[in-house]
């Protein structure tokens, strides 16, 4: 059995993401066999040229979306953390959408049921398709622990770089 802390999810690096939405197209291409960002499980947000980030399901522990569903249409897979939607039970009420703090729950434009990241895996790279296609390498498929390590390393590097620069300029 996979421990909850070993669950992997897709995350975008705010320094690298440029809002090109290639991830949206790759997602709809693979999962829906068409080109349509409205059917993508990952959505990029551009709030200005310098503010870009792609957002999708983070496979949280005790997910609010599952708790919010009044029809028990959502369940979380134990191993992967993927949120599965029972399309017969879901009536598109959208409570899960308002419960998710990341805006990672989406309403399918035709089926009128919700859908979210299924961590689709590419045979070659063993990673989700959006990660594979991202031209900026801004997306990674990580556990919370590797993400924490990455940012910890970055913070420490920055600290020492700043100290070095300060020494140089003295």
């Amino acid at each position: 059995m996979v421990r909850p802390q070993d669950r992997k999810f897709v995350t975008a690096d705010p320094d690298k993401c440029i809002g090109c939405v290639v991830c949206e197209y790759a997602c709809s291409m693979v999962n829906e066999k068409t080109f349509n960002p409205n059917k993508s499980r990952i959505r990029a947000m551009r709030l200005g040229p310098l503010i870009n980030l792609a957002v999708t399901c983070r496979h949280c522990e005790d997910p609010a979306c599952v708790a919010a569903c009044p029809r028990d249409a959502l369940t979380q897979e134990e191993d992967s953390g993927i949120i599965r939607v029972d399309e017969n039970a879901c009536n598109g009420c959208g409570w899960c959408i308002s419960a998710c703090q990341f805006g990672a729950m989406n309403m399918h434009p035709e089926k009128k049921v919700v859908f979210t990241c299924n961590s689709c895996t590419d045979n070659e790279t063993k990673e989700p398709q959006c990660v594979k296609w991202c031209p900026e390498e801004a997306l990674t498929f990580v556990t919370a622990e590797t993400l924490a390590q990455k940012y910890r390393q970055k913070a420490v590097k920055n600290l020492f770089q700043t100290a070095e620069e300060a020494n140089k300029s003295q």
Partner: peptide
């Protein structure tokens, strides 16, 4: 340096 929709460069 940012990019447009669907662009593989920027």
């Amino acid at each position: 340096i940012v990019g447009c929709a669907t662009c593989g460069m920027r």
